[in-house]
């Protein structure tokens, strides 16, 4: 039984103009003598053409005005912002796995966004007079009410604390080191939202990252851009998928 001289992937790469030159030259020759090869190659060319053509009409659908307006508004806001001042960014400390393998653009930080990573309880982002953001204290993990919520509250539920702050676990997962972690949102009474990930270390919840943003919008949620930072954190730490409710309940029950 003769091994195939060219794999499907090589034929496909040839059809897509991605086969390295030496292999492409060899395939050029082989194609002259084999209808089998030409048929297999045609399959990859035909499927590409069919896919492209089939999806073409979608490009002609009118784009909703509000999307274009959003771009214009962001562009205008951008130009204005550039005239005034900028971000408050606290860099990753060295002990946290920075996403070294990630392209820089995977980690966008928005204006008005503050980031701090890997500090213990009572972490504090220093105020920057230029942002007007003021000092943000995440008293989080010394706060027994927050600890209780992380220990017991299922993801998707929230609890409002007496001072009007709200804590809402978003997801529970294991990171690459099989450490139990929870992603949660913490809305302070003053309207500041903190998106945070805390993991279990030595029996306590240790803040791994926290992104704080003045709630700029009516929704009170952290701006979407802050979630890119969260994405980068999650992928850098091999975060597993969110546990389903049963698995989450089981994982949390081990904390008691």
């Amino acid at each position: 039984m003769q091994k195939p001289e060219f794999t499907d992937e090589e034929l496909m790469a040839y059809a897509d103009g991605e086969l390295p030159e030496d292999r492409a030259a060899a395939l050029d020759l082989a194609l002259m003598n084999s209808t089998d090869l030409t048929d297999r190659l045609a399959l990859f060319m035909d499927t590409k053409a069919a896919a492209k053509e089939a999806m073409e009409p979608l490009l002609r659908q009118p784009v909703p005005d509000h999307l274009v307006e959003t771009v214009r508004a962001l562009s205008a806001a951008d130009q204005q912002a550039r005239m005034s001042s900028d971000d408050t960014v606290v860099a990753f400390p060295q002990d946290t796995a920075a996403p070294a393998q990630s392209p820089v653009w995977k980690l966008p930080l928005a204006a008005g966004l503050a980031l701090a990573v890997g500090l213990g309880a009572g972490l504090m982002l220093s105020p920057d007079s230029s942002t007007g953001l003021g000092s943000i204290e995440i008293a989080a993990l010394a706060d027994t009410r927050i600890i209780a919520a992380l220990d017991t509250l299922p993801s998707g539920e929230d609890v409002v604390l007496p001072d009007g702050a709200r804590i809402a676990p978003i997801a529970t997962f294991f990171d690459g080191a099989r450490t139990l972690c929870r992603e949660f949102e913490f809305d302070r009474a003053d309207g500041t939202t903190v998106v945070s990930v805390a993991c279990q270390r030595n029996g306590q919840w240790d803040v791994q990252m926290a992104i704080a943003a003045a709630a700029a919008s009516d929704t009170g949620y952290a701006p979407a851009s802050s979630l890119d930072t969260l994405d980068a954190y999650l992928s850098a730490n091999d975060a597993g998928p969110p546990l389903d409710p049963d698995a989450e309940a089981a994982a949390l029950s081990t904390l008691r």
Binding site: H66, L67, V71, S75, A77, W105, A110, A224, D228
Partner: peptide, 16 residues
Amino acid sequence: VQVTVERAFAARHQFD
């Protein structure tokens, strides 16, 4: 798409 556009602007200085 809306979220994408917002994130793109937030990160525009990182676009190469």
